[in-house]
């Protein structure tokens, strides 16, 4: 079993196609949708965790690439700028996965990329623009 977290950006023409269905049916992959957004007349963005056998996963990714779907690794998606963070904790109650956490002794905030699902809830909570989405 291999696992991959990716951000898929769909061009406007593909938004109406059941791409996830084909990934499951034809490539035998497990898809966990972490986040989905479709803007009318524009494009679709899907943040997914895909798991399956290595070969099938590769084939599935090739299928997506053929459809002109842009694939980005999720870890590149949210950036925490430690130098801008003042450790106020305004973001803490908004993070659903504890990717942003607080050491209650040192009162220091830290960010664990592995836990981040790129839900973006933290972004507007930061008064210092210390969390950035990189698309």
């Amino acid at each position: 079993m291999t696992k991959k977290r990716v951000v898929l950006t769909f061009p406007h023409e593909i938004v109406s196609q059941p791409v996830v269905y084909y990934l499951v049916k034809d490539y035998n992959l497990m898809i966990n949708i972490l986040r989905a957004r479709v803007t009318p007349q524009e494009q679709g963005r899907l943040v997914v965790e895909i798991s399956g056998k290595k070969k099938e996963l590769e084939a599935g990714m090739n299928y997506l690439a053929e459809l002109n779907i842009d694939i980005q690794s999720l870890t590149r998606d949210i950036k925490w700028h430690e130098n801008k963070c003042v450790h106020c904790t305004a973001c803490i109650p908004h993070c659903p996965t504890d990717a942003i956490s607080l050491d209650r002794d040192t009162m220091k905030v830290s960010f664990d990329k592995q836990k981040c699902i790129a839900c973006e809830l933290c972004i507007p909570t930061c008064p210092y623009q210390a969390i950035e989405i990189v698309i």
């Binding site: 003042v86 450790h87 106020c88 904790t89 305004a90 973001c91 803490i92 109650p93 908004h94 607080l102 209650r104 040192t106 009162m107 220091k108 909570t125 008064p127």
Partner: peptide
């Protein structure tokens, strides 16, 4: 407040601060 949760109307509510305890220290 600084421990992270307070009880309001029987519900555990997560807390966040705008002030920085770390910087104040």
């Amino acid at each position: 407040l600084r421990d992270g949760y307070i009880e309001i109307e029987g519900k555990q509510v997560p807390t966040g601060a705008l002030s920085s305890y770390k910087k104040a220290r």
